[in-house]
Simulated scan of single mutants.
Amino acid sequence: MMLASEQHTPLMTLLRVGTIFAPERIEATDILMAGGRIIALGNDLDTPKGWPVRVVEALELTAVPAFIDQHVHVTGGGGEGGCGTRCPEISAHEIAAMGIGTVVGVLGTDAISRSPANLLAKVRGLRAEGISAFMYTGAYRVPPPTLTGDIQRDLAWIPEVIGLGEIAISDHRSSQPRQDEIERIVSDTRIGAMLAGKRGICHFHIGDGKRGLEPLRRLLTETEIPANQVIPTHVNRHPALLEEAADYALAFNASVDVTAFEDAGDGLSGFDAVSRLLELGVPPERITMSSDCNGSLPEFDANGAYLGMKVAKNTTLIADWQRLVHEGVLPLESALGLISTNVAWVLGLHARKGRLAIDCDADVTLLDSKLQPQQTYVAGRCIYNVSRT
């Protein structure tokens, strides 16, 4: 692997590819990148002789916006079965090898041996290795653990913090927050984000409890909070929850996030979940997919006793996404929204990410004919090249 810290990187990089989906297909086949941004798109682009430019000839590959994973346990999740069940951290290589240029780090059940400060340190470490990394403040529990002691201050003063999450509801592992507590933390997130010029989403972990999405329905019905402030994830945990998620998305013109479970068990795979949401009339731009990678996939009995667990991987996310295109569920330009364009919009990063356009971040993934990532660029620097692994 080649990391972004490689020395003697030219000031500009010119990618010459076969096709560009931006996410729509465009006529251009060249991408010129400098200063971390895309500065030109066209055909047969040239630069003055002697300029410090590296030319990458990849005419057999397709350029797309680098993927965005909005739910990654970058410090490792787990712990539900004791200290021996803590999941490992994720590496920059594991992220970039899947064509992912941007991740959002999240804490889950364990906010005791792991903390927002630990998460921030990991996020900054990934940035140092070339990954575009952000984080949610908080964890499963309410009141949420924070960096500064206050949700609004975290959002206002810490650039890497772009929202709150993952807050657990309808789950035996949640802190069983009251409705007024949910309303307060979402409101605090909204105000802190407004002061910082961020979207400030609240990322909600939905368990398999009988309340389902009801707390979020009440939030959007009984308060003035806009639907784009709230993102429910793991909505494919079981078929009834997915049906409820479709109704929720349509009723509130809201976005829902599908998890690419490696072993869906009683739930639906990412492929099956997206396919079903589309059948139920949910617009593709209201659907996102995330990996939950390096988080735990615990199994409990009917009484909530721990039985065992697996560790989630981001390879499943890419495999499910590829299958949606290969089997004709969505064309490539629409499918890209699920793990790039739509996600950028949800996170409030759409002015910079999720598109290949002039002045956008130079985050580019090069895919082969099977949609397998071959090279990943973040801010114009190659952080993964399959030929050098």
Rank of each mutant, 00 (worst) to 15 (best):
I231G: 03
T233G: 01
N228H: 15
C202E: 01
T221G: 00
T223F: 06
T223V: 08
L241W: 03
L241H: 00
G209H: 09
N228M: 10
N228L: 07
G209A: 12
H205D: 05
A227R: 14
R218Q: 15
G212D: 03
P239K: 11
I225Y: 00
G207E: 04
E214D: 09
L242S: 06
H205C: 12
G212E: 01
L242M: 08
L219G: 04
V230Q: 04
Q229E: 07
I206N: 00
L216P: 01
C202K: 02
V230H: 08
P239L: 14
E243A: 15
T223Y: 02
G209E: 09
V230W: 08
H234F: 13
G209Q: 04
R218V: 06
T221E: 14
H205A: 11
H238M: 03
P239W: 05
L216K: 09
I225Q: 01
A227L: 05
T223Q: 02
K210Q: 12
L216N: 00
D208M: 13
E244R: 06
R211I: 15
R218T: 11
E224Y: 06
R211W: 06
L220Y: 11
K210I: 13
N236I: 06
H205P: 06
H205F: 13
H238E: 12
H234R: 11
L242V: 03
L213H: 02
L241R: 13
N236C: 14
H203Y: 11
A227V: 05
L241I: 12
P232Q: 10
H234Q: 02
H203G: 08
E244P: 01
C202D: 01
A240F: 05
I225C: 02
V235P: 00
H203L: 13
H234Y: 12
E222Q: 10
N228A: 10
R217Y: 11
A227F: 09
I231E: 08
P215W: 01
H238G: 01
